[in-house]
Every structure is written in structure tokens, then in C-alpha cells.
Design a protein around this nucleic acid. Structure first.
Ligand SMILES: [Mn+2]
Ligand SMILES: [Mn+2]
Ligand SMILES: [Zn+2]
Ligand SMILES: [Zn+2]
Lengths: 142, 142
DNA sequence: CAATAGTTTAGAATTATTATAATGTAGATT
DNA sequence: AATCTACATTATAATAATTCTAAACTATTG
């Protein structure tokens, strides 16, 4: 979703009623310069800080999954213990900082084209994504 | 761990006492031609089928994590809702069949060398792994 | 054969997530 | 504008995966 767009219209377009909660979530998620990564918990905190009224955890889950289904959010699997979501819904690669548990997007231009020679019969490729795990470089220093 | 090796010795070598449960788990995991992928649930079923005596779920978790720490197992993140483990502990790529939820290893030779141009200052690369999601190809057929 | 440290175990606790069912509300219909 | 209805929100209960606890057990050492 583009920044500062008419969220009410955007929600209606995809058949989601523009409720107070959903509009606030759109603002928190999409009214910013860059896309970002978050966990449900991160998001609940962000919303709570920006709303006078409390939002139910169930609504956050419902809405995140509704947005995901409509293609406005994407789930990322790096840690099998928690779901990460991404407002960048295109297929793209990530760095994962194992010290800070932070995800960093990787531009197409950062990686040479990936060529997959293996084919699986009867199956088509849905996505090709790289995960580059990094950690602080504090070992052999002179 | 190599197939048909002396698991008792191997366990002792890394400081794990060779208990009945651990030896059985070694047999189930490593006495086979090829490496494979499993969930904790898969593993509990496999062990139960091969043991007269029951094994505690806690022991399976404990032992899987002990083996992981010793480098005999590797955790794979594809689905944020469940942990997958791999007896192939080298860094390697995967196909994930979204229909069957099956993981398939990808040989080094199946993928052209991946060149990462982006550097993150103060961080070293620990691993570079590709996940290729595939699904059945049942759409536009003439 | 102790003694001891490590291991297994059942069951409780925790965490993330989903289901339930009552209440509320957006948008359509009168 | 009042009413209707399908969709949403909510608190709370339920579930599922995983971890913790503390007692019973066992491999190894002396
Ligand atoms: Mn999900
Ligand atoms: Mn784990
Ligand atoms: Zn991203
Ligand atoms: Zn594998």
C-alpha cells in the first residue's frame, strides 16, 4: 500500500470494511518512508502507543491475516518460534542479524541473478528467496 | 553422523551419555542411506514404532536439541508454526513443496554460485541459504 | 559397591496462535 | 432517520508447540 493513500478507499476496494482499527493499522504499517519487518507483538505495541482506545489482540491477528490474504503483507520464516511479517510484499532476499534478530532487506541489485538448474516435475516455482545469516565479526583481530 | 557407526562411542566423544533413548534416536536418525528432514512429531512416531518401551516427549526434545548443539542436527525454518530438522547439517539449499509440505535438498551443483555484493559493516556471513517454494503446476494446460 | 553427576520422565507452565460467542458497527434498505 | 444485516471487534477459552520442574532413574567414577 502506498504511503498516505486513502486507506478507507483502499480497504473498501478489497472488500474490507474501513473500521477504526483497520485504518489505524494501515497508518501504522504504511504511512512511512520505507517498508519494514515486524512481529505481532511489535505491532500491538506500536498500535497501542498511537491509539487512545485499546485494540484487541484478536483484532490484530485477524487484521494481519486479512491484509496478508489481500496481498498487503507477507509472512517471513526465519525463526520457527515466531512469525515475522513484512510490508514489502515482493519476493526479495533478506539478511538476518543473529545478534539483534533484525531482518534487513536485500535489493535485487545486491545479488547476482540466481539460476536454478534443478527442475521438479509437475511443480512450478513460486518464489526463490535467499536468507543470509550474519553475526558480529569479533574473532581473529590482530 | 555416519551410517552404522558406533553410536555409543560417538555419543561419548561429545560428552553425551549413551543412554538407551539416545542410541535408539541415533539409529532412527542416522542408520539410513540418505539424510532427511523431520518434525518433532514425525520423529516421535518413528521412535515409538521402533521401541518396545515408550519414550518421553521431553526426552525427544532434549535429545534433538542436544544433537543440534553438538552439530549432528540442524534446524530449518520454512514454516513459522513448526520446527523442521535436518540430518544434513551442511549449509545447503531447499525446495519446499507447498502442496505436500515436503522439504527437498538441493545439491550445490543445482544452483549457480551465489554472489552477494552487499556487505554489512562489522558483520560476517554465517550462511547463505536459498528456499525455493514450489507447487503443482495445474493452471494453463491446453 | 557406593557416590555423583547427568538423564529421563510425567505433568505443569508458558507462549504463540486460533476458536467461540456475545456485542458492536458499517453500509444497505426501507 | 430508523431498521436491518452481514461483517468486525472483543474478552475469554481452547489449542498446539515447546519448555520447565522436580522427582525417580542410571551411567560412570572412585
Ligand atoms: Mn501464519
Ligand atoms: Mn529451536
Ligand atoms: Zn523484507
Ligand atoms: Zn536439507
Amino acid at each position: 500500500m502506498p504511503k498516505n493513500c486513502n486507506f478507507i478507499e483502499k480497504l473498501r476496494e478489497v472488500g474490507l470494511r474501513p473500521t477504526k482499527q483497520r485504518i489505524k493499522m494501515c497508518e501504522v504499517l504504511y504511512n512511512r518512508e520505507k517498508t519494514f519487518h515486524f512481529t505481532i507483538n511489535d505491532l500491538v505495541k506500536m498500535i497501542s502507543e498511537q491509539m487512545n482506545q485499546k485494540i484487541s489482540l484478536a483484532t490484530v491477528y485477524n487484521t494481519v491475516h486479512a491484509f496478508e490474504k489481500k496481498g498487503y503483507l507477507k509472512e517471513i520464516s526465519i525463526d520457527s518460534h515466531k512469525s515475522y511479517f513484512d510490508t514489502n510484499t515482493s519476493a526479495h532476499h533478506h539478511f538476518f542479524d543473529e545478534d539483534t534478530h533484525e531482518l534487513i532487506d536485500c535489493d535485487e541489485s545486491d545479488i547476482d541473478k540466481i539460476n536454478i538448474r534443478k527442475k521438479i516435475t509437475g511443480k512450478k516455482i513460486n518464489s526463490v528467496e535467499l536468507l543470509v545469516r550474519v553475526a558480529s565479526d569479533n574473532q581473529t583481530q590482530k
